[in-house]
């Protein structure tokens, strides 16, 4: 049975799900949600699907998942026969979950900076641009350390759901005027993600970075 993704083309969180669905080559029916300007996510019909009023929502048979990082982990656990996207060794598993949480918490600032700059939506964090730069610095420093060990991705030598979860907040930086010049490892990492088989872009993802 095909997956169902309640989706919004311009949502960075929904893009995480679309990207992994495409990379894993999964059948997925997309249900477009009029998030902006229609605020369909505030309506009763959508709240019945997701009381939190956020996209994406993934429906996989009887399973409904409402946060993007959990969607990624679920897709990898259930639909990736290679097992590489969600490592099962203790260290790899822990690191992957750690970076998923980083994407959900620290990189939230980037999403808020983008939505404020693009659509005028008021941010819920105090200094979204400052928070974004701090998160980028942490990621860039980590990728520098990874490169010392010859590891091109956040967790190891192959990409995991951690890379997918962190990618949109970084690659869409140009949409809120946050240049990546100061984060050279971050830029080369986005190019490696771009080169993955099955990669798809979204509006705002620059051709070259």
């Amino acid at each position: 049975m095909a997956l169902v993704l309640h989706d919004y083309e311009l949502s960075a969180d929904a893009y995480k799900a679309r990207l992994l669905v495409s990379i894993l080559g999964l059948d997925c029916v997309k249900v477009p949600v009029d998030v902006f300007p229609g605020r369909e996510t505030d309506g009763a019909a959508f709240r019945a699907v997701n009381p939190r009023g956020t996209v994406p929502v993934l429906v996989d048979g009887d399973i409904v998942i409402r946060s993007p990082e959990a969607i990624l982990a679920h897709l990898a656990a259930r639909h990736d026969p290679s097992g590489r996207w969600l490592p099962r060794d203790a260290a790899g598993y822990a690191a992957t979950l750690d970076w998923l949480a980083f994407a959900a918490h620290d990189l939230k600032a980037a999403d808020e900076a983008r939505l404020e700059e693009m659509l005028g939506l008021p941010p819920t964090v105090a200094d979204p641009l400052g928070g974004t730069r701090r998160a980028y610095r942490i990621l860039d420093d980590h990728l520098v350390r990874q490169s010392f060990d010859g590891l091109p991705f956040l967790v190891g030598d192959t990409p995991t759901v951690a890379d997918i979860a962190c990618f949109p907040a970084v690659v869409l930086s140009i949409e809120f005027g946050c240049a990546l010049e100061e984060y050279p490892k971050l830029r080369s990492w986005t190019r490696r993600i771009r080169a993955l088989p099955g990669f798809v872009a979204m509006p705002g993802v620059p051709e070259f970075l």
Partner: peptide, 17 residues
């Protein structure tokens, strides 16, 4: 209705960059 809006938004966001 949503499909019509999303098509146009996608086009405009490509222009915006």
């Amino acid at each position: 209705h949503t499909g019509i809006i999303h098509f146009q938004q996608m086009i405009f966001l490509q222009d915006r960059i």
